[in-house]
Amino acid sequence: MVEVRKAIEENELKDVYKVRREVFILEQGVPEEIEIDNKEKEAIHFIVYREGTPVGAGRLRIEGTTAKAERVCILKEVRRKGLGSLLMNEMEETAKAEGLTKFRLNAQVHAEPFYLETGYKTISDQFYDADILHVTMEKNL
């Protein structure tokens, strides 16, 4: 069974950071001081559980009428199983419920096709963030 929900309880937030640490810090080599930043407290955090095990995470921040998805990740061993789509759907529904009209994210270039398939449009040239090539993408809600 797969469950995607807002991470509110302390144990859920610990699971968020555990998944992010695995993907961004250990797998991709992002320095911890970049991965965990001063925007954590203002964000709405999401966790993906598969059979009770944390396997995905993301955070949503509100900037005016725009929702910004950040730190979206799925553990390597369970990628390409639809979990990323479930996570993004939950984040988008939360943004809609908040009355937001636009969803924006900075996608790693390798993930750009995934976001294009789900209705996002690339609105920037490629740029580096944490030494990883990204593009900014947007979707109307």
Rank of each mutant, 00 (worst) to 15 (best):
M1S: 01
M1P: 11
E3H: 02
E3S: 08
A7N: 01
I8G: 03
I8V: 12
E9L: 09
E10H: 07
E10T: 11
E10P: 02
E12W: 07
L13V: 09
L13A: 05
K14N: 07
K14A: 14
K14P: 02
D15Y: 13
V16L: 02
V19E: 04
V19M: 10
R20C: 03
R20H: 11
E22Y: 14
V23D: 10
I25V: 15
I25S: 07
L26E: 15
E27A: 03
E27F: 07
E27P: 01
G29E: 02
V30E: 06
P31V: 11
P31H: 14
E33N: 15
I34E: 10
E35V: 05
I36D: 00
D37R: 13
N38P: 01
E40R: 04
K41L: 14
K41Y: 10
H45Q: 05
F46H: 02
F46C: 01
F46Y: 13
I47V: 15
V48K: 01
V48C: 15
Y49G: 07
E51Y: 11
G52I: 12
V55K: 01
G58E: 00
G64Y: 06
G64H: 03
G64R: 10
G64T: 12
A67H: 09
K68M: 03
K68C: 03
E70N: 06
E70W: 10
V72F: 04
C73Q: 14
C73V: 15
I74L: 00
E77I: 03
V78N: 10
R79P: 11
R80W: 10
R80Y: 10
R80L: 02
K81H: 08
L83H: 01
G84W: 12
G84H: 09
L86C: 00
L87T: 05
M88R: 15
N89F: 00
N89I: 06
E90T: 10
M91C: 04
E92R: 03
E92A: 13
E93Q: 14
T94P: 01
A97G: 04
G99K: 08
L100F: 14
T101S: 10
K102R: 11
K102I: 02
R104I: 11
R104S: 07
L105S: 08
L105P: 12
N106R: 13
A107V: 14
Q108C: 03
Q108W: 00
V109W: 11
V109F: 06
H110N: 12
P113I: 09
F114S: 09
L116R: 03
E117L: 10
T118P: 05
Y120I: 07
K121M: 11
T122H: 01
T122S: 13
T122W: 02
I123L: 06
I123T: 15
S124V: 11
S124E: 08
D125S: 07
D125I: 14
Q126D: 06
F127P: 01
Y128V: 11
D131F: 11
D131Y: 13
I132V: 04
I132E: 07
H134D: 09
M137L: 09
M137A: 02
M137V: 13
K139Y: 04
